[in-house]
Design a protein around this nucleic acid. Structure first.
Lengths: 132, 132
DNA sequence: GTTCTACTGATAGGGCATTATCAGCAGGGA
DNA sequence: TCCCTGCTGATAATGCCCTATCAGTAGAAC
């Protein structure tokens, strides 16, 4: 017997998901799961880390979120759809910032015979807040 | 009573350490602990992964080795003393290659007020061997 | 409001890279 | 060659991140 319902997946609009999505979109930088929890918890008291991980995972699968991988670090998450950009990792507060621009002459660094498909640039130092 | 020996640290020159050091210096690219083991094992049959980790660690502390951290990857190791350079990560064979050159106009990417201390560039694609 | 069931929080469990443990081995000075 | 002790291999233990589990909760369609 066929169900009378369509095969649509539910995807409920819960308080927790709203808080998490909001926190990520509000931030102008990639957030770690821990940071997402801290930023979203006020809008959804009692929010658990498991729900954060679940929501991040489904966000990546759903295409509105992407993971930002940095050397020796657990991934951060930012919304998709932004322009090509890179990141600045503050060694003091450990936050990651988005930076504009890109030296797009990287092709000439590629060794002969190698096929360049993508690149990643990470700047390290102190953010404005930590530098003073 | 003072010992008649100086306070020098021993640092024995063992077959295993020779094999590991040799493997790393022979390679023209950063090696993972696993790769070090595979490369060094023929010259020191029965070599264990624990010894590789121990030797890598003391090598970094001793200053002749440095860790190469890549996004979402366990660190690789290469000898210190090389010129400033970056790396190419082959998505097919997972090997990491050293590349020359650097677009040293990264300062202008740094946001106002931020203090730039270092940077990392990683190229992704297929190495010559995997590209054909 | 009722009902169905996806969602949630707490936490146990899993995966993986690295380190600690420990008995036996092997540099290397005497 | 002898002896001291640092070194080694096997593997248990750790640490960190993330996922699975499960009973209770709360969207949302009717």
């Amino acid at each position: 017997m066929l169900s009378h319902q369509s095969s649509q997946r539910s995807e409920r609009d819960t308080q927790q998901r709203r808080a998490i999505r909001s926190a990520i979109e509000r931030a102008d930088r990639p957030l770690s799961p821990r940071e997402v929890l801290d930023q979203a918890e006020p809008q959804s008291p009692g929010l658990g880390i498991a729900t954060v991980y679940r929501t991040l995972k489904s966000g990546v699968e759903g295409g509105w979120l992407q993971a930002v991988e940095l050397p020796g670090e657990a991934p951060r998450y930012e919304p998709t759809g932004k322009e090509h950009h890179h990141h600045f990792h503050c060694r003091s507060c450990d936050r990651v910032y988005e930076i504009e621009g890109c030296p797009d002459d990287l092709r000439h660094l590629t060794p002969p015979g190698f096929a360049l498909e993508a690149h990643e640039i990470v700047l390290y130092g102190r953010c404005a807040e930590c530098a003073r």
